[in-house]
Simulated scan of single mutants.
Amino acid sequence: MDDEPRFLRISVVAWDGIAGLCAVIGVTALIITGWLGFRELDARAEAARAQATLGLLDVWETRGFRQAHDELAATVAAEIAGMPEDARIAARTGGAYAERFYEIVATAVLEDPRARKQFNDTVYFFERAHLCVEADLCAREETAAFFDSLKEGFAKTFAAELARRRETDPDYAEALQDFAM
């Protein structure tokens, strides 16, 4: 066994084993480093989405969009309260009667120029939020938690007006299409 080739008094076979072990360790380290890098990148992207979502909430609350929505909702509630009780009760059953009921309410509300501006501002904000989510800039679940119920009520109330505007612009109020009746 003394005729076996050696390097630094260690057999070449042992050196081959050491080289193989180093290769395995290197590949393992590369995989772990890549995985950790991906996790860090994903965590940073998620933090950026959370920051953008908070920014969106700030825009909603401080730039008048929430106020426009709330005032419009109050106007709608007052209009509904002025409708005959039997019409309000029948509208709760849903279906075509509810659609017609809300169409009448929305038409009456949108006769006021201030309400039309509030309507347009609200649609604009919901579109902005939708684009933020679709571009993966805002967190989808958190944005939905804040705004989906508002969008649903808005789309239900103004379904006829939204549909009318989509006749000329099929992409109008895309954020609200999933919530239409």
Results as ranks from 00 to 15, higher is better:
residue 90 A to Q: 10
residue 171 D to R: 09
residue 93 T to C: 01
residue 75 T to P: 02
residue 157 T to F: 08
residue 56 L to M: 11
residue 75 T to L: 03
residue 140 R to M: 07
residue 96 A to N: 09
residue 179 F to K: 10
residue 11 S to G: 04
residue 33 T to S: 13
residue 79 E to F: 02
residue 9 R to C: 06
residue 154 F to S: 07
residue 29 A to W: 13
residue 112 D to I: 05
residue 108 A to D: 06
residue 54 L to R: 15
residue 43 A to N: 14
residue 130 H to D: 15
residue 147 F to Y: 14
residue 120 N to L: 12
residue 165 R to I: 02
residue 147 F to W: 12
residue 19 A to K: 05
residue 16 D to T: 11
residue 111 E to R: 14
residue 56 L to C: 03
residue 63 R to V: 06
residue 22 C to P: 00
residue 61 E to K: 12
residue 110 L to I: 03
residue 126 F to G: 00
residue 163 A to S: 11
residue 143 T to W: 02
residue 98 A to N: 13
residue 56 L to V: 07
residue 158 F to P: 01
residue 162 L to G: 00
residue 86 D to G: 05
residue 53 T to A: 06
residue 8 L to I: 07
residue 168 T to A: 15
residue 42 D to L: 15
residue 176 L to G: 00
residue 1 M to P: 13
residue 38 F to I: 14
residue 9 R to E: 10
residue 166 R to A: 05
residue 26 G to T: 07
residue 12 V to Y: 09
residue 99 E to G: 06
residue 49 R to S: 02
residue 171 D to F: 12
residue 126 F to D: 00
residue 18 I to V: 15
residue 110 L to S: 02
residue 10 I to S: 04
residue 171 D to A: 10
residue 160 A to E: 09
residue 126 F to C: 00
residue 117 K to C: 06
residue 26 G to Y: 05
residue 160 A to F: 09
residue 164 R to T: 04
residue 83 M to H: 09
residue 5 P to R: 06
residue 87 A to S: 08
residue 180 A to V: 11
residue 83 M to S: 08
residue 67 Q to F: 11
residue 68 A to K: 11
residue 8 L to F: 15
residue 74 A to W: 12
residue 80 I to G: 01
residue 28 T to S: 13
residue 81 A to N: 00
residue 53 T to F: 03
residue 7 F to W: 10
residue 104 I to N: 13
residue 40 E to F: 14
residue 58 D to T: 11
residue 145 A to C: 06
residue 31 I to K: 08
residue 112 D to G: 03
residue 179 F to G: 08
